[in-house]
Amino acid sequence: MHHQTTHNSPSRPTIVVLCGSTRYWDQLAEANAYETAAGRIVLAPGCNLKQGHPLWSDPARADRLKQVLDDLHLRKIDLADEVLVVNPGGYIGDSTRREIDYAHRVGKPIRYTHPVDGGDDRG
Rank of each mutant, 00 (worst) to 15 (best):
T36D: 14
T36L: 07
T36Y: 03
T36R: 00
A38M: 07
G39V: 01
R40V: 02
R40W: 05
I41V: 13
I41Q: 09
I41A: 12
I41L: 15
V42L: 13
V42I: 13
V42P: 10
L43K: 06
L43Q: 09
L43T: 00
A44L: 13
A44H: 14
A44K: 15
A44G: 03
A44C: 06
A44Q: 15
A44D: 08
P45Y: 11
P45E: 14
P45M: 02
G46R: 10
G46T: 15
G46Y: 07
C47V: 15
C47L: 04
C47Y: 12
C47R: 06
N48Y: 10
N48R: 06
N48I: 11
N48D: 15
L49V: 08
L49W: 07
K50E: 13
K50P: 01
Q51N: 03
Q51D: 01
Q51Y: 05
Q51K: 12
G52T: 13
H53I: 03
H53C: 07
H53W: 04
H53K: 05
H53E: 04
L55G: 01
L55P: 07
L55N: 03
L55V: 10
L55E: 04
W56H: 15
W56P: 00
W56R: 08
W56K: 03
S57L: 05
S57C: 06
D58S: 00
D58Y: 08
D58T: 05
D58F: 10
P59R: 11
P59Y: 09
P59E: 04
P59L: 03
A60Y: 06
A60P: 03
A60K: 11
A60M: 08
A60D: 11
R61D: 03
R61F: 01
R61L: 11
R61T: 13
A62E: 13
R64L: 07
R64P: 00
R64V: 05
R64T: 03
R64F: 01
R64Y: 01
R64K: 09
R64C: 00
R64N: 02
R64S: 05
R64I: 02
L65Y: 12
K66F: 07
K66H: 02
K66Q: 12
K66A: 12
V68R: 12
V68Y: 14
V68P: 01
V68C: 13
V68L: 13
L69F: 09
D70E: 15
D70K: 00
D70Q: 13
D70N: 14
D71T: 09
D71H: 13
D71M: 14
L72T: 09
L72F: 15
H73G: 09
H73L: 09
H73C: 06
H73A: 02
L74R: 15
L74I: 06
L74A: 08
L74G: 09
L74K: 14
R75L: 10
R75M: 08
R75C: 06
R75N: 02
R75F: 09
K76R: 12
K76C: 10
I77K: 00
I77C: 08
I77Y: 04
D78I: 08
D78S: 00
D78R: 01
